[in-house]
Measured scan of single mutants.
Amino acid sequence: ILEEAISVVMSGKMSVSKAQSIYGIPHSTLEYKVKERLGTLK
């Protein structure tokens, strides 16, 4: 489920907030994982 949510957000089909409510994943977790994948994590 997490992988799917990350893919959807990264493809631009859904915002982090929308994915959070649909997949039930905490906003901070989703945002962290997306940034980690994009290489923008500081």
Results as ranks from 00 to 15, higher is better:
5 A>D: 00
8 V>Q: 14
28 S>K: 12
32 Y>W: 11
36 E>Y: 02
29 T>I: 15
25 I>G: 03
26 P>G: 07
10 M>S: 04
12 G>F: 00
21 S>N: 10
19 A>C: 06
13 K>P: 01
6 I>Q: 02
9 V>D: 03
26 P>I: 00
24 G>D: 11
34 V>L: 11
33 K>R: 11
15 S>Y: 00
10 M>E: 07
5 A>V: 06
24 G>A: 06
40 T>W: 08
7 S>D: 10
3 E>M: 02
22 I>N: 08
10 M>H: 02
4 E>D: 03
37 R>K: 10
31 E>T: 10
42 K>T: 14
28 S>W: 06
28 S>V: 07
13 K>H: 08
3 E>C: 02
27 H>N: 10
23 Y>N: 07
24 G>E: 07
36 E>A: 07
39 G>W: 07
23 Y>E: 07
18 K>R: 10
31 E>S: 09
18 K>V: 08
18 K>C: 07
30 L>H: 03
36 E>Q: 11
39 G>C: 11
38 L>P: 05
5 A>Y: 15
15 S>G: 07
19 A>E: 01
5 A>R: 01
11 S>M: 10
37 R>A: 09
14 M>S: 05
28 S>P: 10
22 I>D: 09
14 M>F: 05
41 L>I: 11
25 I>V: 12
1 I>H: 04
34 V>W: 03
18 K>I: 05
27 H>P: 12
41 L>Q: 14
20 Q>H: 06
21 S>V: 11
21 S>K: 13
21 S>Y: 06
9 V>S: 01
33 K>G: 12
9 V>Y: 01
20 Q>E: 15
9 V>K: 01
37 R>M: 02
42 K>Y: 11
35 K>L: 07
30 L>A: 04
7 S>K: 12
39 G>Q: 13
33 K>H: 14
1 I>G: 12
26 P>M: 01
25 I>N: 01
6 I>D: 03
42 K>H: 12
8 V>P: 00
30 L>T: 02
39 G>D: 12
42 K>L: 08
10 M>F: 00
37 R>E: 09
12 G>C: 01
37 R>W: 00
32 Y>P: 10
9 V>L: 04
24 G>R: 07
37 R>G: 07
42 K>A: 15
16 V>Q: 06
26 P>R: 06
38 L>Y: 10
34 V>F: 02
39 G>L: 11
20 Q>R: 07
14 M>H: 03
24 G>F: 01
24 G>V: 01
42 K>F: 07
1 I>L: 13
42 K>V: 14
7 S>G: 11
1 I>S: 14
36 E>C: 04
40 T>R: 12
23 Y>L: 00
34 V>P: 03
3 E>V: 01
32 Y>T: 15
28 S>D: 13
36 E>M: 04
29 T>M: 13
33 K>F: 13
20 Q>W: 02
41 L>P: 09
8 V>I: 08
32 Y>R: 15
7 S>W: 07
11 S>R: 07
39 G>A: 13
31 E>P: 01
32 Y>K: 15
33 K>S: 11
33 K>P: 04
7 S>R: 12
34 V>K: 04
6 I>S: 04
29 T>E: 14
34 V>T: 06
11 S>A: 12
23 Y>H: 05
18 K>A: 12
14 M>P: 02
13 K>S: 09
12 G>P: 00
28 S>C: 09
2 L>G: 06
23 Y>F: 10
32 Y>V: 13
36 E>H: 03
25 I>M: 03
2 L>V: 08
10 M>A: 09
41 L>G: 15
9 V>Q: 00
13 K>I: 05
4 E>L: 06
22 I>S: 09
38 L>H: 11
24 G>N: 10
39 G>N: 09
4 E>G: 03
27 H>W: 07
7 S>T: 12
1 I>D: 14
23 Y>D: 08
17 S>N: 11
37 R>L: 01
5 A>P: 03
18 K>L: 06
21 S>Q: 14
28 S>Q: 13
1 I>K: 15
32 Y>D: 13
19 A>T: 04
16 V>S: 10
16 V>W: 02
25 I>H: 01
19 A>N: 01
22 I>W: 07
36 E>K: 04
6 I>Y: 09
30 L>C: 02
28 S>E: 15
29 T>P: 04
41 L>R: 12
10 M>K: 06
3 E>F: 03
14 M>L: 10
14 M>N: 02
6 I>T: 06
33 K>T: 10
18 K>P: 01
17 S>V: 10
